[in-house]
Amino acid sequence: MDEITDGLYVGSSMAETDKDKLTDSMAETDKDKLTECKITHILTVASHYPPSYPSAFTYKTISIDDLPNENIIQYFPECNQFISDALSAGGRVLVHCMAGQSRSAAVVAAYLMQKDRLTAEQALHLVKERRPQIHPNDGFREQLELYCDLNYDVTVDKPLYRLFLIGHSAEHFKEYGSVQPVAAGADPGMQQQGLPTQRLVRCKKCRRALVTETNILDHQAGVGQVAFSYNKRSANGVDTPHAFPQNRACSSLFVEPMEWMEGVKEGLVENKIVCPKCLAKLGAYSWAGAQCSCGKWITPSFQIHRNRVDEVRQR
């Protein structure tokens, strides 16, 4: 195992050691190494890996596989808290996975990012200086970049994070044919205070507020599939929350799942979209996707017809 910063180590499973898989002498040697480094806390980031010395160290276990489509960013806040609390109390922390290259490196990089306000690249560079063999998978690297874009605050009220979760659910549906629970956009019609100045979409029949600017997902006209994505980079490398400029020729608006849409929380694959107040039919949604009038195939598709709503600017 390697010390990344004062009191914070990254290692493989051999650093913690599952004593049931090794001889007693080997297990004793590894425990002595932990004691020599004055380790007090162990953060395990691996699947089906029970603590080897539960009475000797304070453990936290995150069960996650080293796969690009795994949602590791959701665990960054609690991992950061565990590490921070341990170090603040004068403890020393080992973060380990199986090889000590991907999961553990991503978690420690996220901690450094949050503590020192670093970019993903900067944090990974610091970890790699002390442990050259680290190599987080591409999905984890993208989530570290998202973590920076979120200003190190992983909450569902952030549109970028909701879009990431929707994309994650879309990939799950594509692979397994079922829909995971999704973080839906807040219902603007239920907000107690006035909505901020922004684009607002209302039901044409009853004027009920349906979606705001942050819920609308713009796209370019054309033929082909647009994968749901939390973020894209423009030609000059600048991050843009909406990757696809709005084409006013499209007869529909595509939005994120909303709290007021029937069946979204229940995990329905497809359903009609109706106004929650007057029940006027507004469109439909399908996790399998649908084609816009411009020819673009959108996956998943939460489609509201423009002729059923009014788009206004709040003042």
Results as ranks from 00 to 15, higher is better:
residue 1 M to L: 05
residue 100 G to R: 01
residue 290 A to G: 07
residue 146 L to F: 07
residue 37 C to D: 13
residue 59 Y to L: 03
residue 110 A to N: 05
residue 249 A to F: 11
residue 116 D to C: 04
residue 190 M to R: 15
residue 173 F to I: 05
residue 41 H to L: 08
residue 2 D to G: 06
residue 169 S to Y: 06
residue 313 R to D: 14
residue 236 N to R: 10
residue 229 S to R: 06
residue 197 T to Q: 14
residue 208 R to L: 08
residue 71 N to M: 07
residue 132 P to K: 07
residue 113 M to T: 02
residue 307 N to V: 05
residue 134 I to C: 06
residue 160 L to P: 12
residue 44 T to Y: 00
residue 148 C to T: 15
residue 297 W to D: 09
residue 24 D to A: 10
residue 47 S to I: 12
residue 69 N to T: 07
residue 242 H to M: 11
residue 294 C to D: 08
residue 67 L to I: 06
residue 45 V to S: 01
residue 173 F to W: 04
residue 24 D to H: 09
residue 110 A to P: 00
residue 32 D to V: 07
residue 249 A to W: 08
residue 240 T to S: 14
residue 54 P to D: 10
residue 91 G to M: 11
residue 222 G to R: 07
residue 147 Y to I: 05
residue 7 G to P: 02
residue 35 T to C: 10
residue 261 M to D: 02
residue 187 D to T: 05
residue 39 I to P: 01
residue 175 E to M: 14
residue 119 T to H: 08
residue 302 F to D: 00
residue 23 T to P: 06
residue 287 W to E: 00
residue 276 P to W: 03
residue 204 K to W: 08
residue 244 F to W: 14
residue 128 K to I: 04
residue 8 L to Q: 03
residue 192 Q to E: 15
residue 254 F to M: 03
residue 117 R to F: 11
residue 303 Q to C: 15
residue 146 L to N: 01
residue 137 N to E: 08
residue 13 S to H: 11
residue 279 L to F: 13
residue 139 G to N: 05
residue 268 L to S: 05
residue 162 R to Y: 04
residue 299 T to I: 14
residue 251 S to D: 13
residue 182 V to A: 00
residue 182 V to C: 02
residue 195 L to G: 04
residue 61 T to H: 07
residue 255 V to T: 10
residue 162 R to Q: 11
residue 3 E to C: 03
residue 80 N to M: 12
residue 198 Q to V: 15
residue 139 G to W: 04
residue 173 F to Y: 10
residue 258 M to E: 04
residue 286 S to I: 02
residue 112 L to T: 00
residue 26 M to F: 13
residue 108 V to L: 08
residue 77 P to Q: 08
residue 99 A to V: 05
residue 128 K to W: 08
